[in-house]
Every structure is written in C-alpha cells, then in structure tokens.
Simulated scan of single mutants.
Amino acid sequence: MKMIKNSILGLSLITAGLLSAQSADMTNILKIGINGGVAVPTGNASASFGADLSYQNLVTPGFGLGVATGYNQFFGKDNNNDFAIIPVAALFRFYPKQMGFYAGADLGYGFITGNDYVNSTSSVLRPDGGFYLKPEIGYHNRDWNFFVHYTKVFTGDKGEIGTQKYNAGTIGAGIGYNIPLGK
C-alpha cells in the first residue's frame, strides 16, 4: 500500500512539473490583434477599426504587466472627419486560471492624428491627445484572446471642443494572438 501511495505521489510531482514547464515558456509574450467597435457617445465619430500590439511579462502565473500600442482608425460622420488614435500605454492583466476568463486594462496616453480641424467646415482645432483608457474582459487560452472592450481618450474636462462634442471612445470586440518569447 505504501508503494502505491509513493507511486501516486511521484506521478503527481512529475505531472505538476510538466504542466508548470508548459506554462513557464509563456512568461514573455508578444500579442498582436485586431479590434473594432461603435462610437460612444455618438458625436463626431461613428465606428472604429484597429490593430493592437503589446508585450506582456507574466509576473506570476495569474498576473501580467507590459506595454501596449496600436493604431485605431475612427470613421467620422463627415467624410472629412476621420481621425486615428495611437496609444502608448501600460498593460495590466489578471488571469484566474491558465485558460478561461481574464480581465485587464491598458492605461496611458492616446495620440490623436488626422486633419488639424474637427471637421471641414470648422475652425476648431482637433486635440493632440489625452489620457487613454482601455478596460477589457474576455476569454483566453495558450494561443488566443477573445475580448470585449471600452476604449476612451479623455481630451479635456468635459470631452468637448467648443460647442461640438469630440468623441474618441468606442465599445467593441477584438481578437489577439499570443506569440511566446520564452522566459
């Protein structure tokens, strides 16, 4: 009986070692993905589509820190009212399990690019950028992340320029691919 218990204990330790070895090669991860969304609140933009690029280091198996950037194109309601956001942000992720639900956020600065004016008939200058916030929740496995997000660049106290509300926010969904970089 004692030999069976020792065999089970030995097999358990070997299995745990193999499982941790499989997750240990995912300590440093490059993430690439795409996202899309609808503008909220409605204002000068109607929708967005973008690409994400980030680097993540798993500080613990359930918590990741890193840096994030990308390019998000906002489609204006006017033909001349398109603009883009290029974020430079810190990445925070919480993974309760190796596969399943996760939550996180990107926090930083969002650079706004495009036409210098809010629209073609305005003399109001577009802001250069502001505080960038992108909370997200989703599902992850070893290779993929599927998520929903809220993305916003806060351009002022009220988010307004003159009398026109300037909208640089979306609610949307995205998908990302994880590329392991090793330990």
Rank of each mutant, 00 (worst) to 15 (best):
L18C: 08
L18H: 04
L19T: 00
L19K: 06
L19D: 03
S20M: 11
S20V: 09
S20D: 09
A21Q: 03
Q22S: 08
S23Q: 14
D25C: 01
L30Y: 10
L30Q: 14
I32L: 15
G33L: 02
N35A: 05
G36H: 01
G37M: 02
G37L: 00
V38A: 09
A39V: 03
A39L: 07
P41Y: 07
P41M: 11
P41I: 03
T42Y: 09
G43N: 05
A45E: 09
A47F: 10
F49W: 05
F49N: 03
G50W: 13
A51T: 12
A51Q: 10
D52L: 15
L53M: 13
L53V: 15
L53Y: 09
S54N: 12
Q56F: 06
L58F: 15
L58R: 15
T60A: 08
T60D: 11
P61H: 10
G62H: 02
G62I: 03
G62P: 01
F63K: 04
G64C: 05
L65N: 04
G66A: 00
A68I: 05
T69P: 06
T69N: 05
G70N: 11
N72A: 10
N72R: 12
N72P: 07
F74W: 12
K77A: 02
N81R: 05
D82R: 08
D82C: 12
I86E: 01
V88H: 01
A89V: 11
A89P: 04
A90I: 15
A90F: 13
A90V: 15
R93D: 02
R93V: 00
F94C: 03
Y95W: 07
Y95M: 02
M99Q: 09
G100N: 07
G100E: 00
G104P: 01
A105R: 06
D106A: 15
D106E: 14
L107E: 03
G108P: 07
Y109G: 03
Y109T: 00
G110L: 04
F111P: 04
F111C: 03
F111Y: 04
I112T: 08
T113D: 07
G114Y: 05
N115Q: 12
N115P: 10
V118G: 12
S122I: 01
L125K: 15
L125G: 01
L125W: 08
R126T: 11
R126V: 07
R126N: 09
P127E: 07
D128W: 11
F131L: 13
F131M: 11
F131N: 10
Y132A: 09
Y132T: 04
